[in-house]
């Protein structure tokens, strides 16, 4: 077999394998999206814990504050896209109300985004009292969405 034909056949085979692989594990299965959004949230928790460690005086390095605050804002930026129809069932703690009252959910998200932006500003101030205040307000905004839209423990 001539070399060019061999290459073409290999290429075709590779394409077929990729297609079959991706159909066997279809992308954007509801369970994958649910896991994904839960991980975004767990990340928020981790960044909050880091900021809190500085506020509590357990860690004196303030170098990471800006990155932690930015990461929360970025995570929230895309969070609304992670609730497509079809992801309301299964292993999720999101309540059906997320889909029934989408406007309210988006409002709670926008409030949290504002609080996260405010956190970024506070982080830049390097003033612990200001950072602590912003963190408290951010926490309130997290609760402002969890209370109506997340299952109780």
């Amino acid at each position: 077999m001539a070399a060019p034909i061999k290459h073409i056949l290999t290429a075709i085979a590779t394409v077929c394998t990729i297609i079959s692989l991706s159909t066997a594990h279809a992308a954007d299965e509801p369970e994958n999206i649910i896991k994904f959004r839960q991980n975004v949230m767990k990340g928020n928790g981790a960044h909050i814990t880091n900021i809190a460690a500085v506020v509590k005086g357990q860690v004196t390095t303030t170098a990471n504050l800006a990155a932690d605050a930015q990461a929360i804002a970025d995570g929230l930026e895309n969070f609304g896209k992670l609730f497509p129809t079809g992801t309301e069932g299964g292993k999720t703690n999101a309540l059906a109300k997320v889909w029934d009252d989408r406007a309210g959910f988006d409002k709670a998200l926008a409030d949290a985004q504002d609080a996260a932006e405010n956190m970024i500003g506070a982080a830049a101030s390097n003033d612990i009292a200001t950072i602590g205040k912003a963190l408290g307000a951010l926490g309130k905004s997290c609760g402002g969405c969890h209370k109506p839209y997340r299952k109780k423990m």
């Binding site: 767990k42 928020n44 928790g45 981790a46 960044h47 909050i48 814990t49 809190a52 963190l135 408290g136 926490g139 309130k140 997290c142 609760g143 969890h146 209370k147 997340r150 109780k152 423990m153």
Partner: peptide, 13 residues
């Protein structure tokens, strides 16, 4: 003081 849990989640209910 704040309602934050050790994992950074907020206490609910």
């Amino acid at each position: 003081q704040t309602g934050f849990l050790p994992d950074g989640d907020v206490v609910g209910s």
